[in-house]
Design a protein around this nucleic acid. Structure first.
Lengths: 344, 344
DNA sequence: TTGTAAGCGTTATCAA
DNA sequence: TTGATAACGCTTACAA
């Protein structure tokens, strides 16, 4: 049995770059597993060993490969979050506490925009699932059949937010958009307004709010409630739609319900430009209670949704499921509050 | 050599769940590699085989494990993006085209907020590096020494955006904040204003813009330029700071330069509430040319930065480096444009 | 066109 | 307290 008989295969690394636990261990005089243990649970390693490993890590600049870790442990420590739009402050503000809560438990957020299209959402869900997140947040409760199927098959904690349903994929934290629209109608009618109109952005939930408003107000007042629509929910659209209501649709005053505070602010600006006094000539109600609502002139009457609490509750519900427990409730209605200020 | 002599070890899966290429292959009557090839390059597989594999994938609902793929190929197909704040529309709007451009090449974005703290940024960079992104975007050009060290050690394409430097870590796409501040000063002085004040949010780049404005305007006019500061760059702060300038710091009129359009809009609101006419009693200049700039009353004079182009250029620079090529320039100044509207 | 074998860099299991 | 060894589910040679 000499060397030529049994030539030991020379294992050759494909890529010598990249510091590994193997290298750190060599430098610290321990095996690769010990390095792994040192990082995951220092109490399982002797203090002296720990010190040498720390030293080696500092010297080499070792950064553990979380991909390998995730593959081996079947826990990626990532939570994916799918929202219609990152630039929409409404989603961004609930994401911040959601993310904070999860970060404090060591999770990172894999964030994607889905637009408002269920098919795009399905594609994004698939892309995210391929990265094996430990949980997933979806915005809204209406999804492509394929999305539901993939999610049920993947068998991971899922929370649907910003809307409510009795039949969530898994968990749900949100509120009823129709109820909020009706609440605005009842408030406005109760405040004495007898004419109303609506201004509505393109997304489906906004439309549900405004339809409910229009229907309820119509019932209460016995009048017709025109609703002007736009794709983009920005200031300029708010201005343009008020113009449209007044100049083209014969709206002569009363209350204008808007599907967002930004649209409402556009209405305020256009009203001022036309010399209309708010709320005397025209009352305005927004939605969202964004920061601006309290700062505009006159201050905006609006519907507040506690987005902070919503994001946090969604994170906590997922964490409970990740920990293998069953949340006390799988559907949480965070509700909404009508905030009366000067504009209506 | 019978069975009892050499008992074949019974390999036991740790977790029988989760469809793998192995399982798909078994169902389609091919080996695991063939499934891999079918997915990465269908032309290398016979049409009949392809059909059977597709069928098996559909039946099983197989979703490839990108973690395993990344580990084996050393390409994660993820690009990480670090911005100070997701809720800040300025960063969000450059992220959208950045993300689009990369998505079209199959990359996903791993997004994190870093706040405005270099140490928090360093921690986030480390967390991201552990996921082995193929490239990274950082906001700003001032980073902790540790951040630079990690990034240079990781040897990946890095682009720093939204500011400019002669000595980038790798690539840089941005503009000079000081130059934009000076440009506003020169415009305002040239337009005939002889008194000025500044309103400035807490972040370092905003301060650089306003300092440059104050210094330049001071030099041109020979007057002192008071600058009011706030942590939060929202509407309410804009209103409060105008109040502060007028009531406490003796500002009697002229031009007010603001570090963002939102602050400027707050100034417009407060001015209107005080019965001041803009630009007659008070001229206002914003920064950013956000959507609202064109929709407020009066329309806002502001500094436009082509955030869309910036995000796209950053993505393209990274893609060039990922492809192993050398970008023609490692520093790209996208500049800025002063947009004159009615407010100044 | 397909398959075999050897990694990728960790964690989990079991033994020492 | 430590280490050897076998996964984890892919991709990349290389061979057939």
């Amino acid at each position: 049995m000499n060397q030529s008989d049994d030539p030991a295969p020379i294992p050759r690394k494909r890529n010598p770059r990249g510091v590994t636990m193997e290298a750190v261990g060599r430098m610290a005089g321990v095996s690769q597993v010990t390095v792994s243990r040192a990082l995951s649970d220092p109490s399982k390693v002797s203090p002296e060993t720990m010190a040498r490993i720390r030293e080696a890590i500092a010297v080499t600049g070792f950064v553990p490969n979380a991909l390998a870790g995730a593959l081996a442990s079947r826990r990626s420590m990532m939570v994916s979050a799918l929202v219609p739009s990152i630039t929409n402050i409404v989603y961004a503000t609930m994401l911040a506490p959601f993310s904070d809560e999860l970060k404090s438990r060591g999770y990172q957020i894999l964030l994607s925009e889905t637009g408002f299209d269920p098919e795009e959402e399905a594609a994004t869900v698939e892309a995210h699932l391929s990265r094996r997140p430990d949980a997933m947040l979806l915005t809204g409760v209406h999804h492509a059949a394929r999305t539901r199927r993939m999610l049920l098959g993947a068998d991971l904690p899922v929370v649907e937010v910003w809307d409510i349903t009795e039949t969530p994929i898994d968990l749900c934290v949100g509120f009823s958009h129709a109820a909020s629209g009706r609440a605005v109608a009842e408030f406005a009618h109760g405040a004495g307004y007898r004419q109303a109109a609506g201004i509505c952005a393109g997304d489906e939930r906004a439309q549900r709010r405004l339809s409910a408003f229009a229907e309820r107000f119509g019932t209460l007042s016995g009048t017709d409630v025109p609703v002007a629509r736009t794709e983009r929910g920005n200031l300029a659209s708010g201005r343009a739609l008020l113009t449209q209501l007044i100049d083209k649709r014969g709206f002569t005053g009363g209350v204008v319900a808007c599907s967002s505070d930004v649209l409402a602010q556009g209405v305020l600006i256009e009203a001022a430009a036309r010399g209309l006094s708010v709320p005397r000539d025209l009352a305005v109600v927004g939605f969202g209670d964004q920061e601006l609502a309290d700062a505009v002139e006159p201050a905006l009457t609006t519907v507040r949704v506690n987005r902070e609490a919503l994001g946090r509750a969604a994170a906590q519900a997922l964490l409970t499921r990740i920990d293998g427990a069953t949340p006390s409730r799988s559907v949480i209605d965070v509700g909404f509050t009508l905030i009366r200020r000067a504009s209506a």
